[in-house]
Design a protein around this nucleic acid. Sequence first.
DNA 1: ACGGGATATCAACAGATGAC
DNA 2: GTCATCTGTTGATATCCCGT
Length: 275
Amino acid sequence: MFVSIEEKKIAHRLVENFLKHSEKLPYVNIGKNNEYLGWVKDFNLRDSEGRKIFLDLAKEDDLFLLFVLVLGWSRTGPWENAVNLVSYLKINGKDKPSYWLEESNYLSEINLRQQSAELIYSQLQYEIEPRYKISFRKDTFRSIHVLATKWDAIINKLEISKLRSDYTIFMTYLRSVRGLGKLPNEKILKKIPLILRELRCQRIFKNIPGELCCVADRRVLGAAQSLGIQLVNPSNLSNLIECSTKIYKLMGDLYDLPLFAYKDLGLKMSGHLIR
DNA sequence: ACGGGATATCAACAGATGAC
DNA sequence: GTCATCTGTTGATATCCCGT
């Protein structure tokens, strides 16, 4: 996809602005070389004993939770729900694929979900209070079960992708699994790059290209539109990759975050920048 | 204060539209 | 006609709103 000189200028300004204000953005962790360190590196949450909640993706259970996070985040609702769901599973020892493989377990988790949401709220210390009451969607649990049934295959595809240095193998496979979307037959798409982004950020797989790591969700697309950056509608895997590639060309190792944060930067910049 | 219906929100999907 | 892109619909659920 074509990147114009004007788009490069817009991106440059946005990145400058983003870096200047990144400390005020609760969801942003930035490293010494102005690179994004990843979302799961630090959720800005602590358990009752004051220990930070985060995912170490070198551990298989935490890797499983990264996928759960993505499933939760791909649902409607405040993003806090996804983070709290992952924290609930981690703190309460429900972070193993084998647990979710059992049909009786995932069905009982559905029934428990209201209590679980209240439980985790009482178990955590928040640096920033969630905006709404924590709640867990029913359909997310079925998807976690499906994830568990495909877990070995998913790991296998990741390994093959690593060996061949082609992570579209993994993406294509994940996209093909039915039941990871909110309906039993639906599939996941938009948030697939997030998985690769977090793995790249933690350097678990060292040959993941940044071009496959930018999320283009509604918020990112909206920001691009109001800034005058042209992105295709990521309605299938090839569009998604095209979109992610262009964002990476513009933003580098900050990925989609400057665009994601655009709203929160309270920008006066769009007026000057576009014509 | 409480329950039920309407509304807003989002991503995925499928059908419609447009370009060649 | 084929392929890619655009648009409208679908479905779950939290929140809002109103009557009781």
